[in-house]
């Protein structure tokens, strides 16, 4: 999992493939390296066993359940993340992350990229 030190590594957890791939393209165009995109929490966990990203974009609900455990693990490692999802009221089991950055779907790519830059300052 070698990462070029100049480009911040962003983990993308999103189970809508078209959205995920577009996100990947947008992030790469904006100078990020993308880990993933992962479509399940299981796959993201497997990757996290051997690596830690600089930041993460998490969809609230994946095919194998809410992203809660991943969000907890990232918090433990002090990795900043944002949640990219429908309305936050849809996710009572993610209430503890309501103070995190939530971006409502769909958001313009520059909104997401700007939010990433704010989460991970000094990547330019």
């Amino acid at each position: 999992m070698d990462q070029p030190s100049s480009k911040p590594l962003v983990l993308v957890l999103e189970d809508e493939a078209i959205i995920a791939l577009n996100l990947q393209d947008e992030l790469q165009d904006s100078g990020y390296t993308v880990a993933g995109p992962f479509t399940t929490c299981g796959a993201a966990f497997q990757w996290l066993e051997t690596a830690t990203p600089d930041l993460a974009i998490l969809d609230a609900t994946l095919k194998d359940g809410p992203c809660r455990e991943i969000a907890l693990e990232l918090s433990r490692r002090e990795v900043p993340f944002l949640i990219y999802s429908g309305h936050r009221d849809d996710h009572p089991n993610l209430a503890e992350f309501h103070h995190n950055v939530w971006i409502e779907k769909p958001a313009a790519p520059n909104v997401l990229v700007r939010a990433c830059r704010q989460l991970h300052v000094g990547c330019d």
Binding site: E16, I18, I19, L21, N22, L23, E26, P106, P109
Partner: peptide, 10 residues
């Protein structure tokens, strides 16, 4: 809507 937005990009 999110898919449509991604389609715009792609």
């Amino acid at each position: 809507l999110a898919t449509v937005q991604a389609l715009v990009g792609a």
